[in-house]
């Protein structure tokens, strides 16, 4: 059996559940929207770790579970009953704890997801693993930013933490507002010319997609009325190997790696997303990422 943990209406989760159903894989969806209906027991003791789920009166031995795909989003408080809300919060907290203790295939253990909470920290790791990263400056000093802009000509800015932010270019208009950085250090990066490539690593399988869009941040292209075109892409072998190395080093069995292929052919790495919305890229390219994920969870793929 495999377990899905997340929100039933979250598209990547819904797609994984759909694939499990299509492949006739025994599975259980633990819906974060209905946590008060499920019970959890997690234990560490003389015999090591043990865990059990109780769903509709039946006990599931968590040690016997082959794989868990977790996309924990915000837990919604149960209406009305404060005890249900407390139980739901305890479940959410306890299940995250279990994901780090579980001996089976967990996609992904929360402990492996921390590097994404600091982009410049993760950039240091990525560079050590062989990927060039954009020259980065985090500062609250406008003069440092202007010197950085003179050096790199085109500069973008984005959040430092894992908080999702729209990547913007530091154009002349933005530069006139630079005094604002004195309030809070901000991350600036040298603009990297080229084509965006999103790589999904699923176990030992690599799926690359090329994204063609005039938008600076293709994730928000549609919102800005700009087109986005996705196409399956063949990565050079050494780049694919680096992607596998990065995923393994970060302890991520599934991840989305954001690259940009420069005009000289080199791939620069922006970041690694430990909870990628793979279904968007699967729909745009036809790559069987969901199938690869379920096969990974069931042990049919390395």
């Amino acid at each position: 059996m495999i377990i899905f943990y997340g929100r039933a209406d979250d598209t990547p989760m819904a797609r994984a559940v759909e694939v499990a159903r299509e492949l006739d894989v025994e599975h259980l969806l633990v819906d974060q929207g209905r946590l008060a209906t499920v019970d959890l027991w997690v234990e560490v003791g003389a015999d090591g770790v043990d865990g059990r789920l109780v769903v509709a009166g039946s006990e599931v031995d968590l040690l016997a579970v082959q794989g868990i795909y977790a996309r924990p989003l915000e837990v919604s408080a149960a209406d009305g009953d404060p005890l249900d809300a407390r139980r739901a919060m305890t479940f959410a907290d306890g299940f995250l704890e279990w994901l780090d203790l579980a001996p089976g295939c967990v996609v992904n253990p929360p402990a492996a997801m921390h590097s994404n909470a600091s982009k410049p920290y993760q950039a240091q790791l990525l560079a050590r693993l062989g990927f060039p990263v954009p020259a980065t400056l985090v500062t609250d000093d406008p003069e440092e930013v202007m010197a950085f802009r003179r050096e790199h000509v085109r500069v973008v800015y984005k959040s430092i933490s894992g908080v999702r932010s729209v990547v913007r270019e530091l154009d002349d208009t933005a530069a006139r507002r630079l005094d604002r950085v004195r309030v809070l250090p901000t991350q600036f990066q040298a603009y990297v010319p080229g084509t965006d490539v999103r790589v999904h690593v699923v176990g030992s399988r690599v799926f690359a997609a090329e994204i063609v869009s005039p938008a600076l941040d293709y994730r928000y292209a549609t919102r800005d009325g700009l087109p986005v075109r996705l196409a399956a892409h063949d990565l050079p072998d050494d780049t694919a190997e680096r992607c596998l190395r990065v995923a393994a080093a970060l302890g991520l069995r599934l991840c989305g790696i954001d690259l940009r292929r420069r005009p000289d052919g080199e791939h620069v790495c922006f970041e690694v997303n430990p909870m990628p919305a793979y279904s968007y890229f699967e729909a745009g390219t036809g790559q069987p990422i969901g199938v690869a994920l379920v096969e990974l969870l069931t042990g049919k793929a390395a």
Binding site: L126, A127, R128, P132, A135, T139, D140, D141, P185, V268
Partner: peptide
């Protein structure tokens, strides 16, 4: 004042 740089080599 904060100045924290990460070079392309990390």
């Amino acid at each position: 004042r904060w100045v924290h740089r990460v070079a392309p080599d990390g």
